[in-house]
Structure formats: structure tokens, C-alpha cells
């Protein structure tokens, strides 16, 4: 890959990262508006806070990936859009684990509803469980790779 090709590729990656982060922010705010208009202002506030926190963390990661490229970790490089092939393999491995966890959890959740467990509560807890599973799987796969 020539210097020019690499520059073009970097530019495309940069543009893609800004588009992705902007789309995530717009989607987050749009979802919060919908939830708020449905009469759940506290949940909407939570969606805005959580979503924008992720956007801010990704932006900080992007900034650090330029300023302190040797001191950032796998997750930061992925969030910053500067992942190499190992980072992407760690990401894929973690997501594969989460996919299996989600499959098992959805089965268990479905069965739980037949035992009169509150389905709404299950639905609300599920994202947090999956986020925790994602973080755990990521750390384990990263350390083993």
C-alpha cells in the first residue's frame, strides 16, 4: 500500500468514524424523544445520558488514539476506529460469545415467563446483562489473544 493509498484509507476511516458516531448520537436522541413522548421522561433521560456517555467515551478514545497511540488498549482502538486485525478478531470473538449468551438467556427468559416472572422486568434487565456479558467476554478474549 502506497503512502497515498494509506492516506486515502485513513481519510475514509476517519469519515466513517465521524459518520458512525454522529448517527449514534442522532439515533440516541431520537430514541429518547420517542420514549419521552410516550410518557417516560426518566427513561428518556437515562437513554440520553447513557448514549451520550458512550459517544463521549468513543471521542475520548479517538483523541487518545492520536495522542497516546502506544498506551491505549484494544477496546479504545476499536471505539476510536483504529483497530488492527487482532483487535477486530477479539471484537468478533467477544460478540460470538455474547451471541451464544443471548441465545441461552432468551430461552431462559422465555421459559421464565411461563413461571409468572414479570416479562417487562426481564426485558429491562436483559440489556444490562448483555452489556456485562460483552465486557466480560471482551476482557477474557483480549487476554487470551
Amino acid at each position: 500500500m502506497s503512502t497515498h493509498d494509506r492516506s486515502v484509507a485513513t481519510h475514509k476511516t476517519t469519515v466513517g468514524w465521524y459518520l458512525t458516531v454522529s448517527a449514534a448520537a442522532v439515533l440516541d436522541l431520537g430514541l429518547a424523544l420517542v420514549v419521552d413522548s410516550a410518557g417516560h421522561p426518566d427513561a428518556a433521560a437515562g437513554i440520553v445520558t447513557g448514549g451520550l456517555l458512550v459517544v463521549v467515551l468513543a471521542s475520548v478514545g479517538r483523541w487518545r488514539s492520536v495522542r497516546a497511540v502506544d498506551r491505549i488498549g484494544t477496546a479504545t482502538r476499536i471505539a476510536a476506529g483504529r483497530a488492527d486485525e487482532r483487535d477486530l478478531r477479539v471484537h468478533e470473538g467477544a460478540l460470538a460469545v455474547v451471541g451464544m449468551v443471548a441465545l441461552v438467556l432468551s430461552g431462559l427468559a422465555s421459559a421464565a415467563t411461563f413461571l409468572d416472572v414479570d416479562a417487562v422486568a426481564i426485558l429491562r434487565v436483559m440489556p444490562f446483562v448483555l452489556v456485562a456479558a460483552t465486557a466480560t467476554a471482551f476482557v477474557i478474549v483480549d487476554r487470551r489473544s
Binding site: R86, D87, S145
Partner: peptide
């Protein structure tokens, strides 16, 4: 690639 990738 990253330093971590070289290490791995």
C-alpha cells in the same frame, strides 16, 4: 499494527 499485536 499495534504494540499489543506484536506482543501477542
Amino acid at each position: 499494527v499495534s504494540r499489543q499485536t506484536v506482543n501477542s
